[in-house]
Structure formats: structure tokens, C-alpha cells
Amino acid sequence: MSGYLDSIPHPWNRKQIMAAMTHKFTEVKPSIERTPGGKIWNDLKGLDDTVWIFYTSISELIDEICIFGERSKDPEFWNERNEKTAEHYTREVKRKLYYCTSSLMTLVEVARNFDKRHDTNGVGVKRAEFFTTPGLHDFLQDLRNFSTHWRIAEANWSINYNMKNGTRTVHFQITKEDLFAWRKWTANSKCYIQALNGSVDVYETLTTYKKQAQAYYSWHKGVVIEQNALSLQQYFEYTKIHEGLRQYQKWNMLLSHAKNNTNPYQYLAKFLSRSQIESVLSYPKHSEQQVDALIRAVDMYQICDKNLKAKLMKVFSVSE
């Protein structure tokens, strides 16, 4: 659905955006979001959210393994009355491993759709450059299918002691036997599993992949912003103008309807931070300097004109 602004050639100016708000204010924001820069930025935010969900899933899984490692040091942990404690952590690791592989598949689809819509330069080359562990990406994707169509991967703990170094390490591992019970692994995934020494170490596998993903998606976001800088600049200019006009309307209404006996100081904490309040109160009470300090603190869109300042001076009872 198009709005008033959609029929006007770019670039839009303040006067045109103001006219569109007067025509039908609810259409303005959607029109701005439909600009090329708006589409890119919103798609990038969606990709960022998906990346964050994937990273957070891995972090929560790693935290679970670390908590198990720390608590299992206590002999009481292994008492018969606590026999379900280890099982509880094993289930939590399995559950969170499932979340990791599921969120990865979502990320793969969202990233693929993003690149189709916005034709990001160098994606194929850079993906191969950052994801350097042969078969790891394919394995994690197939592991999601394994858990969805076969069974939840059986991650079991093992505790290793190094008497020479005095170290103790806890691992959650998936055996090759358990994995190969499923017959639908891709060739790259099979090669990855077969190349492992014994079992898949959940911690090491996902830590390695997360580092590679972080490097790739940091590069990806940077190149998208650089490649679309002009469209994004225009989009943010429109949003700044639109938000400034909205703020002007809000403050004009609030100040116009302020009662004569209003104590403005009781509202400072509602709109200002502590440091901003301290800055405002460093000037004489009911002074123009105090009003100017307040304007500097809240007027991030530089909307305050003579009309608004006059109304603010009246609210603060500034003497002529």
C-alpha cells in the first residue's frame, strides 16, 4: 500500500514530509521504511537478530557444560540421592544443542534470502575464507536434520584427568556410532565425522564454528553498510526529519496545555538523566540560561524554535 510520500520523487525534504504527516500521519513511517535504505536496514536488523539468537544458543550451551564441570567437582554431586543431577545436565546439553543446530538452519536461510535481495559483493569468496574447517558447516546443518528426523543427538559427558599437569576437563561427546546410525549424512559431513579422533566434542565443535561465524558476519555487516551507504544515508535522514517533526508536535502539545501553576521541576526526572538534571540545576532558577540548558539536554533533533522556547520560558516562569 502506497502513501502520500510514495508519489513524490526522491529526495524528500522536511516540507514534503511535514505535508505527508498532515495528510495522514500513519502512512509516513511505512513510506520511509519502504525506501531502498529502509528495506536494507530492516533486513539487516532481522539478520542481526538471527545471528544473535544463534550466538546466544551456543553461549547457553557452553555455559551449561561449564556449570556441569564446576559442580561435578563436589563429591556430593555424585551421591545416590543426587543421581538425577548428572542426567539433568545431560538433558540440558542435549536440549540446547538442538536449539543451536535449529537456530543455525534459520540463520542460513535468513542470510541466503538477504543476499538474494541485496546482492552483496564477495559473499561466496569470503564465506570460504572464514569458514575454514572442512565439513564443519555441513555437519552442523545435517546434525539439525539428524535431531529433527531421526532422534535427539545423545551427548554424554566424560571427565578426563591429567595427573601430570593436575588438570581436570569435562567433555560432552557424541559418538560416531550414534551418528552413523542415521544414513542421510552428506558426503562433506561424513568426511568431517570420520576425520575426528573418536567422538564429536560438543564444546570444541561449536566454539570453533562460533568464532568463524563471528568473523564472517562482522565482515558481512560492514560490506553491506559500505555498499549501500548512500541509500542508508537517505533513509536515516528521512527518519531523523520524521522523528524531529513528531517530537515537535509532542512538545508543542505538552507546553500548550501546561497549567499556569505547574511546577516544571517535578517533571525533570521523567525526561532527563541524573547528569542532565544536575547540568540544568547548575543555572539560576527560573532563568533563561536554565531553559537553554534544558533545550540542549533534550533537543537531540534540534527542533526547538522561537515558538517552543517561548512556551518553555512561560512554563518555567522566566522573567522578561
Rank of each mutant, 00 (worst) to 15 (best):
E76K: 13
W219T: 08
Q302H: 14
Q249H: 11
D138Q: 06
D115N: 14
D138V: 01
R71H: 14
R246S: 13
R127K: 13
T90L: 08
Y55M: 04
N307W: 12
D119G: 08
H257W: 12
S273C: 07
N260Y: 10
I152K: 05
T175N: 06
Q234M: 13
K24E: 00
V93A: 08
G222Q: 09
D299P: 07
L97A: 13
Y267G: 15
G198D: 07
N261V: 05
N252T: 14
V291Q: 00
K240I: 00
P9L: 11
T56I: 05
A20Y: 01
L61V: 04
E129R: 01
E60Q: 09
W41E: 09
H171T: 10
F146T: 08
G3H: 06
F172V: 07
V298M: 15
S2I: 14
A86P: 12
S287G: 01
N79Q: 12
P284K: 13
F172W: 08
A19Q: 01
G124E: 11
K29P: 03
Q141C: 08
S317C: 14
D6S: 15
G38F: 00
I152L: 07
A269R: 12
R81A: 08
G166A: 08
A195H: 11
Q234C: 08
Q173L: 14
G198P: 15
V170Q: 06
K210C: 06
I58S: 03
K314P: 02
G122Y: 02
W150G: 02
C100K: 10
L140A: 06
T169R: 04
K176H: 09
N228V: 01
W219G: 04
T167M: 01
R112Y: 13
P9M: 08
M18Y: 05
L294P: 09
R127S: 08
K221L: 01
T262L: 09
H242R: 01
Q276R: 14
S273G: 15
S59M: 10
D292Q: 09
E278P: 04
A269M: 12
D49I: 07
R91S: 15
L255T: 09
A187E: 10
N252C: 09
M313I: 11
A195C: 09
F172G: 05
Y248P: 14
K24Y: 00
R246L: 11
L268F: 15
I53V: 13
N13S: 12
N162G: 06
Q227E: 15
H137C: 02
E237P: 00
N188Q: 04
D305M: 02
Y248V: 13
S199A: 15
I241K: 01
H220P: 05
K116R: 12
Q194N: 13
M1E: 12
V28C: 05
E87W: 10
Y4W: 06
Y203W: 14
L5D: 04
M18K: 02
Y98G: 10
E243Q: 04
K190I: 15
A111V: 06
R71S: 07
I62D: 05
T207Q: 02
A19C: 00
P11S: 11
E154R: 05
V200F: 10
I303W: 02
K259W: 04
M1K: 13
